[in-house]
């Protein structure tokens, strides 16, 4: 029974490219996986450490900018490096950025974490906009295509989709694994009872900073996928709108479970792309807003929360019919 869900998802991802056109493959599918990975980094932070960060798109942007800087120099800006080295550097820089943001944000809680990470995000946006030596100003980087590996062009729709799927799956599995390790358990303990964890001798700020670093690494992977999707990056990619989009997709999907990241990213991308078809073109943003409002209103824990609640209700109804008693291992759920 436990294998059915992952197998269904794997089958879906394998079959998906052969039933859809290139728009659904790249623009919806590819974007869901890349953007979803950035959302995953936020969901990881929020679900397991209780910290809400608005700087995840920024960290992803650093990963993207670094990749572009080292693989697609433009107009005298950038240094051409072999792509494996460029990717290692990009992920390293994204992780470092995550750690640094963690250092700044670690002593704050709740709304203050949100504010301070938003400030970091906006500062980075204006930096990219006005710095011409590293970020190439408003224009940013164009023609940042994915590498060709052993004759396989990773930028072609099908390889790009599978690449995104594999990386997204690794990130997802990574998060699921990490939260079961002593480190992950300590983070969750920290989320629930920081004082007790401190009393037990854990270094609370260090744990939090490390969590930010790991989230930075994941966001970096998402950022690189996002860069390759458009083959370009510019300040618009790290502006206020995309920064908020990450939070929105997270809340939509349900910020309590890693799967919510990808569900949220998918719904967000679809609504964002198709809302204009259903309403006068001057008003489609209102429709997008209303859809999001409705989801948050009727299911505060997002779509995954909605599904979880519905299935629990079914399960309970089923038990009542059979008159079965609750099993011991269900207690406490």
């Amino acid at each position: 029974m436990r294998l059915i869900i992952p197998l269904a998802v794997v089958a879906l991802v394998l079959v998906y490219p052969f039933v859809v056109n290139s728009f659904w493959l790249v623009q919806i599918g590819g974007r869901t996986l890349g953007f979803g990975t950035i959302v995953l980094s936020l969901v990881f932070l929020t679900a397991y450490t209780g910290m809400l960060s608005l700087a995840q798109m920024t960290v992803a942007g650093i990963g993207g900018y670094a990749t572009a800087y080292f693989t697609a120099p433009t107009g005298g800006v950038g240094v051409l490096l072999p792509w494996p080295l460029a990717l290692v550097l990009a992920l390293g820089l994204a992780t470092l950025a995550g750690l640094l943001i963690g250092l700044v944000a670690v002593r704050t809680r709740g709304i203050y974490t949100l504010m301070i990470t938003l400030a970091v995000a906006m500062a980075f946006y204006y930096l990219t906009l006005q710095n011409y030596d590293i970020f190439n100003g408003f224009t940013g980087f164009n023609n940042a295509d994915p590498p060709v590996v052993l004759g396989l062009d990773l930028g072609a729709p099908l390889p790009f989709f599978y690449l995104s799927a594999i990386l997204a799956a690794l990130c997802y599995a990574g998060v699921r694994h990490v939260v079961r390790t002593p480190f992950g358990l300590a983070l969750q303990a920290l989320r629930d009872e920081p004082d007790r964890v401190r009393a037990l001798g854990y270094n609370v700020p260090l744990l939090r900073v490390l969590a930010f670093g790991l989230a930075g690494f994941i966001a970096g992977i998402g950022g690189i996928l996002n860069l390759w999707l458009n083959a370009s990056i510019s300040p618009g990619s790290v502006a206020l709108n995309p920064v908020i989009d990450v939070l929105m997709a997270g809340v939509l999907g349900g910020i309590g479970h890693p799967a919510g990241a990808y569900v949220g990213a998918f719904v967000f991308t679809v609504v964002d792309n198709f809302a204009i078809d259903f309403i006068a073109r001057e008003r489609f943003n209102t429709l997008i807003g209303l859809i999001f409002l409705a989801i948050v209103l009727f299911s505060p824990d997002g779509l995954t929360g909605l599904v979880r609640r519905v299935s629990t209700r079914w399960a309970r109804a089923g038990r009542r019919d059979k008159g079965a008693t609750r099993k011991t291992k269900d207690i406490g759920k």
């Binding site: 056109n21 290139s22 728009f23 659904w24 790249v26 623009q27 974007r31 458009n230 370009s232 990056i233 510019s234 618009g236 990619s237 502006a239 709108n241 792309n273």
Partner: peptide, 18 residues
């Protein structure tokens, strides 16, 4: 679009490919 090249590209892809 909103004036941002990424968003314009996304919308152009939608029009052409979808």
């Amino acid at each position: 679009s909103d004036g941002n090249p990424d968003v314009a590209l996304e919308s152009a892809r939608r029009l052409v490919e979808q």
